[in-house]
C-alpha cells in the first residue's frame, strides 16, 4: 500500500517537472522566434528606406546638382545598409543612413522650388513614415529581446537555456547622437 503511494508521489513529481520543462523550453523557443520575427520586421523597413533613397537623391539632384558630398554620403550609407549582415552592422549602417539623410534634407531645405515639387514632398512624407516604422519595429525587437534575455538568464530557466543552447541576443542600438537627433521631416513645408 505505502509503496503504491510512494510510486504515485514520485510519478506526480516527475510529471510536474516534465510539464515545467516543456513549458519553459517552449517559452524560450517562442521568444526566440519573436525576436527573429522582430529582426525581419526591422529588415523590411530598412529595405523600404533603402528603396526610397535613389529616387530622393534624383529628386534633389535635379535642383542642386553641385551638392556632390551630400549625395555621396547618402549613397555610401545606403550601400553599407544593403551589405550589412549582422545586427550590429545593420544598426551602424542605420545610424549612418539617418545622419546622411539628415544632411541631404538640410541641403534640400535651401531650395524652396524643390519643396514645391509634389513628387519630392511625397517622397519626404514616405521617408518620414518609414522612419517611424523603423522606430516601431526597433521598439518591438528590443522589448522582445529584453524579455528573452531576462528569461534566458534567470534561474531555473537558465539551466534549460544553457542545456539547449539558447544564447542571449544583442539589442538593436543606433549611436546616441543619431538617436538624440533623428531625421526631422516636416510634411507640407
Amino acid at each position: 500500500m505505502s509503496t503504491t503511494v510512494l510510486i504515485l508521489i514520485i510519478g506526480a513529481v516527475f510529471l510536474i517537472v516534465l510539464v515545467w520543462l516543456v513549458l519553459t523550453y517552449n517559452g524560450l523557443v517562442r521568444l526566440r522566434n519573436e525576436a527573429q520575427q522582430g529582426e525581419s520586421s526591422i529588415d523590411i523597413q530598412l529595405k523600404r528606406r533603402a528603396d526610397l533613397i535613389p529616387n530622393l537623391v534624383e529628386a534633389v539632384k535635379g535642383y542642386a546638382a553641385h551638392e556632390q558630398e551630400a549625395f555621396e554620403r547618402v549613397t555610401a550609407a545606403r550601400a553599407h545598409a544593403l551589405e550589412a549582415r549582422s545586427l550590429g552592422d545593420k544598426a551602424a549602417a542605420d545610424g549612418e543612413t539617418r545622419s546622411a539623410l539628415g544632411g541631404l534634407l538640410a541641403v534640400a531645405e535651401a531650395y524652396p522650388q524643390l519643396r514645391a515639387v509634389e513628387s519630392f514632398t511625397q517622397l519626404q512624407a514616405e521617408l518620414s513614415d518609414t522612419e517611424d516604422k523603423i522606430a516601431a519595429a526597433r521598439r518591438y525587437y528590443n522589448n522582445v529581446v529584453q524579455r528573452y534575455n531576462t528569461k534566458q538568464q534567470s534561474f531555473p530557466a537558465s539551466a534549460i537555456a544553457g542545456t539547449f543552447g539558447f544564447l542571449p541576443r544583442e539589442f538593436y542600438r543606433i549611436e546616441d547622437d543619431a538617436q538624440r537627433d533623428p531625421v526631422k521631416v516636416e510634411i507640407g513645408g
Partner: peptide
C-alpha cells in the same frame, strides 16, 4: 492608418 500601422508593428 499610419498610426495604427506603426502601433501594430511595435506590438509585433
Amino acid at each position: 492608418y499610419r498610426t495604427v500601422e506603426n502601433a501594430a508593428i511595435a506590438a509585433g
